[in-house]
Design a protein around this nucleic acid. Sequence first.
DNA 1: ACCTGAACACCGTTCAAGT
DNA 2: ACCTGAACACCGTTCAAGT
Lengths: 209, 209
Amino acid sequence: MPAPGTSLRRSRDDVADMALRLLDEQGLPALTMRHLATALGVQPSALYWHFPNKQALLASVSERILAPMGEEPLGGMPMHEAVRTVGARMRECLLAHRDASELVSSSLALGLVSSPVRAKLLDVARLRGVPASLAEVAAEAVMHFVVGFTFHEQQRLAAGQLGLLEEPVSSSVEGARADSPGGDDFTEALTMIAHGLEVSIAQYRNHHR
Amino acid sequence: MPAPGTSLRRSRDDVADMALRLLDEQGLPALTMRHLATALGVQPSALYWHFPNKQALLASVSERILAPMGEEPLGGMPMHEAVRTVGARMRECLLAHRDASELVSSSLALGLVSSPVRAKLLDVARLRGVPASLAEVAAEAVMHFVVGFTFHEQQRLAAGQLGLLEEPVSSSVEGARADSPGGDDFTEALTMIAHGLEVSIAQYRNHHR
DNA sequence: ACCTGAACACCGTTCAAGT
DNA sequence: ACCTGAACACCGTTCAAGT
């Protein structure tokens, strides 16, 4: 349990930081306004000066979780490779924090956070002369697949941590590489979507030549 | 508001039926054990004789929502057509009930309900000599995409019903056909996944000839 | 077998009032 | 500008006891 906040007043960022810490240490069900207030050494009502409601707080935690997506250098990557890279990177972001995919899934559905996959794929598409509409469709397929798959995956992790399974649970991102169950399925599904995008691009070019 | 239950004792099915009705009429946030009990003319604690907890209740509602998937005749459909058909059908199931995708999304993630897409696609794959592993991967991509996309879509519907948008909101399944925003993106993304599956099948056959 | 009554241990949010 | 105190209107779940 985190120690109560040390000093007098805290910023919006302090609140979001502590929320992410609470998420990592105790999971989404424990991320309540009341627990968060206690962890900050403050009354629950104080949080409503910094955020209008809990969903807004959760959205700002979602943004922190997805922030590393912004640093990914996609350069002049071919489209199909960009699809796989950006999908894998998003999965890493989600697996890096407990219950992150459930949280991000709802922030995305509520439209309180914008898709980092979309921005990335649109960039690459522009550089390579691929129609934006195709990139948008691929981005939607990739994003929903990654979030849904990882949600399911993270749920299994949580069940394992509760002692229902005996496999060693690696909580770090390393688990996302090879040994995690379903890891291969994840990569293969992403490859499938990448293939599908290439076919759509080819069809588009044939039709507009 | 539904009238209190008429007679003496109710079955597990009665409870699930009323829960689905409550979901349709008032949405997921109003589907509480206490509201449900009131609608049935019963004390909240009575529900725990029929279901061990709320998640189990919600899982059984999810099964009802997905039940129409079982009736879809896929016959000797080619694989890529099966992907599109089963995806579109699942979306119809989800759009047929208020907040259904959010509910089903969590039941699926918790592993309390099995993917209807998986069973369907494995059937078709067997009939057409497509390796089951490829069908499984495609099923995962399709299912997560459909649930995620429809979740997002249904959230927009809910926002529209709350008066934030001015477009006419068709709550029936008709809206899923053509006029709903994003309907084209949905079909195109499914087509993309179908294409990708065909490429993977071709590669597999090349490699194993 | 099916349900009541009463309690336990919580939630998010609002708002006047303080400093 | 930032927070307290106190309240409002809720939750899911348990469990002895009733019929």
